[in-house]
Design a protein around this nucleic acid. Structure first.
Lengths: 196, 196, 196, 196
DNA sequence: CGATAAACGAGACGGTACGTCTGGTCTTGTG
DNA sequence: CACAAGACCAGACGTACCGTCTCGTTTATCG
């Protein structure tokens, strides 16, 4: 019983990040073009080692990118709700506008083809971030900006969905103006009296 | 000098639809697993013929699925705006909930990897549908439900983005209740006084 | 009803010679790599036209190279037999040592795969040349150098076979020294008394 | 680190021999029509495995046919030179008259197009056989049939070249009578006094 | 002298094989 | 006994030519 080699694990994750061009200005390749063989070669690791510890290419990328690299766009609690929301959405939009956004989009793309990847994506990426926004929304409710009784999950969707639409469908730029427009619209909507 | 064979074209598109399981109850395969070779074989057509007329697998699928099959979820003009909107959103959600939705999701996935596919997706799928919703919103403004001065493109996003989020991220079912919730929220938001 | 276009015929043969690099210092391509499509394109002629008039690629090359280009290594009748033979063999060896020899070798190669090509090769290349040598041998017999009763066909083989061995098996250079060695050996053999 | 699979190697060579119809009465296909794909399919082996270990189709055929099948037409040392030569030439002519001869001719044909194939052909087929004949000639010289000072390589050519001419140019049958005629002529030539 | 039939260029078409690439599994020997 | 190294089967990739087959468009006799 020889324990899993942490060295190998890191080599694989580093190689993956390097090939994807994460964290550097260089462009890197897409998740689709990234191959297990290329990762193994660059990591100086056997393909079998990768297959032993990760179920799919997407799982490696999730580990390398989301778990061990992607910064959380944290939610500030020291600001009033509207400002905190604006701050958060701006940060998310800024993050998604660059290389990181492309990789996230590609992970969502991979999720269309593999339920396991989708589940991992939810577990490792989505749930955390959704919870953070819902928590933020809770502050809004506590501050009285959002009426009590509002479904906070739908409220979160209201803010997030347009970002993901632009990220995936690319029918517009992910600019700071766009972030502000979303927030303004969302606040208007949420503070309006009619509610399901 | 020799005209393109319409027969071959149809054979390719039919084979593609059959392999994807479009329009039948059978499950079919994903766009990713679909291969040009399989299409060629089933269509009784040479691979070269497919490569001659379509630049990529995604282009074939777009032709076979979006252009020559996918029903437009038309917009009714005989109803008052709120009812027309509800009718439309329900229809879209119903369409996306089934096999058709999966294929659309997969086309968006393919678009993450190829700019040409993205452009074609916009041209053949997205622009039409966005325009239809914007037109619908125009009716809403004409009827006074939506305040003048509202950016109708953002208004359309408000309604559509949550649908695409559920389609792609699958963080919830595409049910009729969901459709209704979107519409209610959207109407509330749009009729609220604060506007960008 | 419409006569064959001599213009097209010449265009095909010219294109073939050009592609093979015949008659120029440039290297050109092998008969194997030469394609009907390339000939058609360069000749500005339809593929069908080539297929209409020639049964195979080898037939085109035979026409272009052997019939309409390759100089006959003529036999001199004004010299005594031994000198005429030496002169002839030297000329043949010189011819075969260059690009022309390679094409002949390739035509013989093609003949291994197609009986029709072999037959055409015999008809358009081999028989003539063999007859010329036999005629030369006849002079030798008339001059008394070769004993009467000698099988002149075998006598011709004796001289020619080593040349073709070097041409095809390339187990030695086709030099003038080699030509002289063949002739000397041949004369010795032919003038020896024992004969079948 | 993983050794080459001898099983796969044999499967490839067997499949090649079977497809060429070597060692059976069935006709088989020519080297030209033989494809790597067909070999792979029949051998139950991946195409990549073949490309990994052999540089070309001709190399596979050389291994399958020449190295691992073709019987050497051995040279008898228990007979006087003239009888040994006759015995050998008869055996070679008999071998070349059948299917084996066709494959040899096709390998020589392939050698016209690829220097590597030519080199392999020399290394795996030609050199051995030429050496055997030269050795035979050495016996002839030792026995006093061939005058000392004779160039034995040219002497070997004298005997072999007509065989290859008939094999490749097919200007006559490879019969036992032909074998005898060559030997008779060769002996006469070699025992004659004039020598280069 | 005008019709008509062949020859022609262009190139689409169904095929087939190419040589490469990647996926995912399995084997061998090393540390 | 986990690992690197890498061989292996499987099969899709996109390309190149094959030889056949329409298409119109010349073009050169013949009725």
């Amino acid at each position: 019983m020889v324990a899993r080699s942490e060295e190998s694990r890191q080599a694989v994750l580093n190689a993956t990040r390097e090939l994807l061009g994460i964290g550097v200005e260089a462009s890197g390749m897409s998740v689709q073009r990234l191959t297990i063989e290329a990762i193994a070669k660059r990591a100086g690791v056997s393909k079998a080692t990768i297959y032993r510890w990760w179920p799919s290419k997407a799982a490696v990328v999730l580990d390398a990118f989301v778990v061990e690299y992607l910064p959380h766009t944290h939610v500030r609690t020291d600001l009033p709700f509207p400002e905190a929301l604006r701050d958060h959405v701006r940060a998310v939009v800024r993050q998604y506008a660059g290389r990181d956004g492309r990789v996230i989009a590609q992970l969502i793309a991979e999720s269309q083809y593999d339920p396991e990847t989708l589940a991992e994506f939810h577990r490792r990426f989505w749930d955390d971030r959704r919870d953070a926004v819902i928590e933020l929304m809770t502050h809004g409710r506590d501050e009285g900006v959002i009426p009590p009784g509002t479904d906070l999950e739908i409220a979160a969707t209201l803010v997030y969905a347009p970002i993901y639409q632009r990220l995936l469908i690319r029918d517009g730029e992910l600019t700071q103006d766009f972030a502000d427009a979303i927030v303004e619209l969302g606040l208007a909507s949420l503070s309006s009296p009619i509610r399901s």
